[in-house]
């Protein structure tokens, strides 16, 4: 546990020293959300109908941005060897990486969600659900993305391969997430959709780090 916390602490400290990576993801998310009103036109109702899907697509793409360097820098400078020899086990190393990715990307995206909601004219009663949905979906993507990043490590054009591998697997999160926000906007119960998202997260929680660890071990 000490080793897990040591690794997590180191990842967070590095993210604090390079705040540009986190900022880039948040700015990307907000800017994509800001582009929609220009494309869709001045009709507020049309914008509100698009809002749930646009929010999720923008958030998942933004969360993908820092993923291709998740293991890359560590592999190049020899840190990855030391992490694999830390006695933690490769799956635990990957779990710490995924958690650090969520804390440095998913959590800031959650905080920026109200801004994006306002730009997309989402009814205010759905904002809290949108924040929760984006947090859960980003967590799911952090886990899938860690496995994807481990698999594409060392591959030529890994940065292109990673979204191709990860985004199709994230489709269930988009479906349930958008349905949940839509339900909340229509004044319906969003709880079942949130629970389904949480179930996706719970399934990925043990599986993705194991898969990522096996991929790192095979390098």
């Amino acid at each position: 546990m000490t080793a897990f916390l040591a690794l997590l602490g180191r990842e967070l400290r590095l993210a604090l020293r390079h705040p540009a990576d986190t900022l880039a993801a948040v700015m990307f998310f907000v800017l994509v959300a800001a582009l929609f009103p220009f494309g869709v036109g001045p009709e507020p109702q049309a914008l509100a109908r698009l809002a749930p899907g646009a929010l999720l697509a923008a958030a998942l793409l933004a969360a993908l941005l820092p993923l291709d360097r998740l293991f890359g820098a560590d592999a190049e400078d020899g840190t990855l060897d030391q992490l694999l020899l830390s006695g933690l086990g490769p799956a635990a190393v990957c779990a710490a990486k995924a958690l650090a990715h969520w804390l440095t990307t998913g959590l800031p995206l959650m905080l920026a969600t109200p801004i994006a909601c306002a730009m997309l004219n989402l009814p205010t009663e759905a904002w809290s659900v949108a924040v929760l949905v984006l947090g859960l979906a980003a967590g799911f993507l952090s886990l899938l993305g860690t496995a994807g990043a481990a698999l594409t490590l060392g591959a030529r054009r890994g940065g292109v391969l990673l979204p191709l591998l990860v985004l199709p697997l994230a489709i269930p999160a988009v479906i349930f997430g958008a349905a949940g926000i839509e339900a909340a906007a229509a004044g319906l119960e969003a709880r079942p959709y949130l629970l389904l998202l949480a179930a996706l997260l719970a399934a990925a929680l043990p599986l993705a780090p194991l898969a990522a660890g096996a991929a790192l071990r095979g390098e």
Binding site: L14, D77, G78, T79, D81, S86, G87
Partner: peptide
């Protein structure tokens, strides 16, 4: 892993 120390080609240092 716990009974060894490995110093590889890379220095495994974080510049920041």
């Amino acid at each position: 892993a716990r009974r060894l120390r490995y110093i590889g080609h890379g220095d495994a240092l974080k510049p920041a």
